[in-house]
Design a protein around this nucleic acid. Structure first.
Length: 315
RNA sequence: GCCGGGGUAGCUCAGUUGGUAGAGCAGUGGACUGAAAAUCCACGUGUGGGCAGUUCAAUCCUGUCCCCCGGCA
């Protein structure tokens, strides 16, 4: 299932990464960098992969994408999902292909787990059959979190100690992995692949939350003016299942509610903003914990360029 | 003006047969190994609308004033 790891190149690949909270200006910063270097932009955002939601997930516009090669944007149908492992595989293939063409790659996105999976590697856990996962979901619903947590405590005490009984997602995942592979989740975590052959240069683009807020609100209004409702209507015609992975994105979910008459447009807009803000905050929490990130404000393109140049030269 | 209902956390509200109060949401911090724009954890002193009275004790009872919402004039 997993492709063999590529043979390690002679020297690690220099890999600038633009990350940070949603709406802070990563796309604009990427295009500014593309003016100075011949580079290819690789998406590292779990939502911008969706084909049916280019506006709502704030993918670079067709005009922007025409300025330089953009990879892994807008290719996935709403009913499919791209897990962190699948992302890391796809991204490393794309990176290798671009590298062979002597092109510098820029990783851009806001999904912390995707960066982690690609840059530090991820345990080689095989794909878990959907039937097994959904069976554990059902058991969660019927027996509850405490019962499942004590079951996990028997089979995988190390991981059980790390998660809360109410953490449905992690709990059911750990039990599904255990059932499908016969090995505890925590055992898999010790089976790390060799470190990926990258030399990352992590650049954060951010603003204090209070300054980000008005930008997020304005971006939502621009999306609505720019056809977000029409986009969602079209997606709804293609995939009417609200539980499909693509519909769980912020903005998509709220508009779905509105289109199915469960939410007025005003309430939809307000909820969309609320959820976006909360998400930006979660991203800040994630990235704040990473000491390797060098932070810039959106208008510091000159400093940012200088920083990338300096790191590119360094061996 | 009269009658009724209300004024409790940033918001919506609950509760206390009198012993100074707690949920949801919001907010802040945190976690994060294939759903990650996901999932989850921790954190609750508020002149209980103002003033006076009864009481050992009032957010709760009484009086009065102010404000909001209905209805009647």
């Amino acid at each position: 299932m997993l492709p063999d790891a590529p043979p390690p190149p002679a020297s690690p690949m220099f890999l600038p990464c633009l990350l940070g909270p949603t709406g802070a200006g990563k796309t604009a910063a990427a295009l500014a960098l593309a003016e100075s270097f011949p580079l290819s932009v690789i998406n590292a955002d779990s939502r911008q992969v969706y084909r049916d939601f280019p506006i709502i997930t704030a993918q670079p516009s067709p005009r922007e994408q025409a300025l330089c090669p953009h990879l892994l944007y807008g290719f996935l149908p709403t009913e499919q999902k791209l897990g962190a492992g699948a992302f890391a595989r796809a991204a490393s293939l794309a990176l290798r292909a671009e590298h062979e063409k002597q092109r510098l790659c820029l990783l851009v996105g806001g999904t912390g787990l995707y960066f982690k999976a690609l840059l530090t590697g991820i345990a080689p856990i095989p794909e878990i059959p959907a039937a097994i996962s959904s069976r554990w979901q059902e058991r969660w619903a019927t027996v509850g979190g405490d019962a499942l947590h004590s079951l996990l405590r028997e089979k995988d005490p190390a991981y059980a100690a790390k998660i809360h009984p109410r953490d449905r997602q992690r709990l059911t995942r750990a039990l599904a992995v255990l059932e499908a592979t016969g090995k505890p989740f925590s055992w898999w975590h010790t089976q790390m692949p060799p470190p990926p052959p990258y030399r990352p240069c992590k650049i954060g683009i951010s603003l204090p939350l209070s300054l980000l807020e008005p930008l997020l609100q304005r971006r939502i209004d621009l999306m609505l003016e720019g056809g977000a409702l029409e986009e969602a209507r079209a997606a709804l015609a293609l995939c009417p299942d609200p539980d499909a992975p693509g519909w769980s994105g912020i903005g998509c979910a709220e508009i779905y509610q509105h289109l199915t008459d469960k939410l007025s447009l005003d309430a939809c807009r307000a909820l969309w903003f609320k959820n976006t803000r909360a998400y930006a905050k979660r991203q800040l929490t994630w990235f704040r914990a990473d000491p390797d990130i060098r932070w810039f404000e959106p208008d510091q393109t000159k400093e940012l360029l200088r920083h990338v140049r300096a790191h590119m030269a360094a061996v």
